[in-house]
Design a protein around this nucleic acid. Structure first.
Length: 521
DNA sequence: GAGGTAATAAACATAC
DNA sequence: TGTATGTTTATTACCT
């Protein structure tokens, strides 16, 4: 099992979002035929790099072509123009890549021009890369032409193959157009993500003088843990932008933002522990808001063989709470797992056993007999109680955990989201009270309860801290699971009190993870 | 290193 | 008898 888990750790590295993975596989430089999910684990050029390169080449060629056309108009006596309408100096390839878009290129160029462009680019590529022994359409003995993957032993054979199979014809032209469309979509997506990133960074880069109640109570800013990690490398104190537009490689390796966290986490372990099961501990737990993560990457998890960065318990709970009646049979839980996660469509014996094990082990899961037979429900109080009791209010612990939240890690976007959520919560007059030593001392009472109330706040769509966690569980007849009074006797009012007095981001995971399940889809 | 938590595996019991 | 379901124990790994 260990070996299998290790291999899964590698596979956990997601490829890409929004259907890019399939594209990446076409130009995969080293990820084999599994959708390019392996990325550049060994420092190879990633598929995105190759794609980017191809994109740049196409753009450059188009620019060259257009410029050539223009120069031809302006300088009819130019020798180069006379030689060929599409032959251009290679030095022009250094032009700014933003001068023309693939869309513009398609609009501007007629099919014959596109063919000419293709021919020109091919000639250029053959000429400059035959010497270097490399070609963006050739890698690992395969032709990387979209949809080809023909095996070529060497560059010469590849060149021959390229000339024979991908000669200038309608098909190649059409494929080129498709590739342009792909690039165009990627650019649109990149622009959107860049804009979002910019907004997030702008938000996070608020000056200390600006109102930011999120930081004040715990003095997080002074601890420096929230941002310091990356401020070393990024002098402005901004979190390292993992999905920066300047680093197109990142999305491929990263995939869903939270996955990135866990993947990175797993990778970090895999460096030292090449084999072994994926163990998801606090760094994962506190970094993975399950509701928002699933909401954002629902399709990704459905299709990608990526292990979700959540515990079985949290997944089971989410499945149950997501159901209309907030109760599921074991089989329905199974179905939810397989429906939501491609990862759970295999190794069924393993994870199903784990599901059953978790259902039985955790008191938060209550077996109930109803008309459907045996169903499982969630006892929210128990669920909150079972959370790690390590948060004792120690500034060091708090700092470390918040530091572990990853403002320096790849899931910075989620930290921003968490911060936003915290801010909106804290900005609610009904919830915010001035922090006090007493309130801080109450941290140990139940940081999870904070999230519990947060969840209720969100689930109601309004800031109503009076809803008790118990209300998450349906009033059903419990056949088994006698209550342990000494453990269940924690007064709800105390929980609410903690929440009120602790605008604490200590459990942002819960804050997000416990978002109303309605947000899931 | 201790203690807690989670993942995994497995044995066993029970019901259908 | 086989399968699904449920419980329990043990081991291992990670984290604080």
């Amino acid at each position: 099992m260990m070996v299998e888990s290790a291999s899964e750790t590698i596979r956990t590295t997601p490829s890409n979002q929004n259907g890019v993975s399939s594209l990446s596989s076409q130009s995969d430089g080293g990820g084999g035929r599994e959708g390019g999910s392996n990325g550049d684990v060994n420092g190879e050029i990633s598929p995105v790099d190759l794609l980017h390169l191809q994109q740049q080449q196409a753009l450059q060629a188009a620019r060259q072509f257009l410029l050539q056309q223009a120069s031809g108009l302006n300088s009819p006596g130019s020798n180069e123009v006379k030689q060929s309408p599409v032959q251009v100096p290679v030095s022009m390839a250094m032009m700014s890549p933003q001068m023309i878009t693939p869309q513009q290129m398609q609009q501007i160029l007629s099919p014959p021009q596109l063919q000419a462009l293709l021919q020109q680019q091919q000639a250029l590529m053959l000429h400059h890369e035959e010497h270097t022994g490399s070609h963006p359409l050739y890698g690992h003995g395969e032709c990387k032409w979209p949809g080809c993957e023909a095996l070529c032993e060497d560059m010469g054979q590849f060149i021959k193959h390229l000339n024979n199979e991908h000669a200038l014809d309608d098909r190649s032209t059409a494929q080129c157009r498709v590739q342009m469309q792909v690039v165009q979509q990627l650019e649109i997506q990149l622009a959107k993500e860049s804009e979002r990133l910019q907004a997030m960074m702008t938000h996070l880069h608020m000056r200390p003088s600006e109102p930011k109640p999120f930081n004040q109570p715990l003095n997080l800013a002074s601890s420096g843990s929230l941002l310091k990690r990356d401020s070393d490398a990024y002098p402005e104190g901004l979190p390292h932008p993992p999905t920066s537009a300047a680093t197109p490689i990142t999305p491929l390796r990263q995939g869903p933002s939270v996955i990135s966290s866990s993947s990175l986490h797993a990778h970090s372990h895999s460096h030292t522990h090449p084999v072994g099961p994926i163990r998801r501990r606090n760094s994962d737990k506190y970094c993975t808001p399950i509701a928002s993560e699933l909401a954002q990457n629902c399709e990704f998890y459905k299709n990608a063989d990526v292990r979700p960065p959540f515990t079985y318990a949290s997944l089971i709970r989410h499945a149950i709470l997501e159901s209309p009646d907030r109760q599921l049979t074991l089989n329905e839980i199974y179905n939810w797992f397989t429906r939501k996660f491609a990862y759970f469509r295999r190794n069924t014996a393993t994870w199903k056993n784990a599901v059953r094990h978790n259902l039985s082990l955790h008191k938060c899961f209550v077996r109930v007999e109803n008309v459907k037979g045996a169903v499982w429900t969630v006892d929210e109080v128990e669920y909150q109680k079972r959370r790690p009791p390590k948060m004792t209010g120690s500034p060091t612990l708090v700092k470390n955990m918040i530091s572990g939240l990853g403002f320096g890690s790849l899931n910075a976007s989620y930290q921003a989201a968490l911060a936003e959520s915290s801010l909106s919560l804290l900005n609610s007059p009904s919830l915010v009270t001035p922090p006090s030593a007493a309130s801080l001392n109450m941290l140990h009472v139940g940081h999870d309860d904070v999230s519990s109330t947060v969840e209720q706040v969100n689930s109601n769509g309004s800031c109503s801290p009076t809803l008790s966690p118990q209300q998450y569980s349906h009033p059903v007849h419990v056949k088994e699971e006698p209550t342990e009074v000494e453990e269940d006797s924690r007064p709800v009012s105390l929980l609410a009190g903690v929440t009120h007095s602790l605008p604490l981001p200590s459990d942002e995971r819960d804050l997000e993870e416990d978002l109303p399940t309605e947000e899931l889809e």
